[in-house]
Amino acid sequence: MNDVVIFAVISLAGIGLAAAIILYFVAQKFKVIEDPKIDEVEEALPAANCGGCGYPGCRNFAEASVKKANKDKNIEGLYCPVGGNEIMSKVASILGLEVEAQEPMVAVLRCSGTKKNAPKKVEYNGPMTCAFAHNLYQGESACPYGCLWLGDCVEACNFDAMYMDEETGLPVIIEDNCVACGACVEACPRDIIELRNVGKKSKRIFVSCVNEEKGGVARKNCKVACIGCGKCFQVCKFDAITIENNLAYIDYEKCKLCRKCVEVCPTNAIHELNFPPRKVKPVENKKPDEIEKTEIKQQV
């Protein structure tokens, strides 16, 4: 009986030993030499694998940063939008470098074509995806630039930073959750969503419209469309506003958040976010005919 036990133990140990030796040599022979820093960098990253940096996943980003650090001694152009400056300085310190802090960004929806502002002209009866609807036709609201109300951006968001507002039909961005990975920007076939800087105290001013049609045409489909009238352009003291193809655009790097443009916009297409309420109430809700007048003037 004992013989059997001893034999079993010895033979098993022998097999184990032989296997260990083979494994050791094989491991030596096929060793992949990899910079241990890659693992360290990857460890520091948020592991969201969202692709916001332009690489397929965090591992690839780590590889790219180590490679660039070894080659160029800097990691310029590489930025993890999810981790932000904190994580990037950590990554830099692992690589023995320093990085300049980048301004944090946030996604902004540049369309106010709600179901109320831009009423339905046709009924859509097909798969609920913007990518298909965009290829098929101009959209239920008849604005060929505006939101299609089908929510590909919400599908694309990995951070619970967006939801569809059933009432307006538009997506809503939850700023606190948004990490500016750009997935929604990529997903939107109409380029409505833009990444803009968060700004001082999260204050932002932007034109909430991307319609490049002539004013009259744009307004026919949507009450709050930018008609390219140029009033904001005239009132801006900082050259932050440009008008191209009947559409105003506010450069967030030049904008000083004075809010003058918001006041003069005849169609309320310029939005301000996170500002305290105004002390003196401006003449809001201009009379409809007044808007019509400006529009007519601009058409002439």
Binding site: G126, A131, F132, N135
Partner: peptide, 13 residues
């Protein structure tokens, strides 16, 4: 099923 709708989208992509 909207088969062709998706196939058309797929062909485009």
């Amino acid at each position: 099923k909207p088969l062709l709708d998706y196939i058309r989208l797929g062909k485009f992509k």
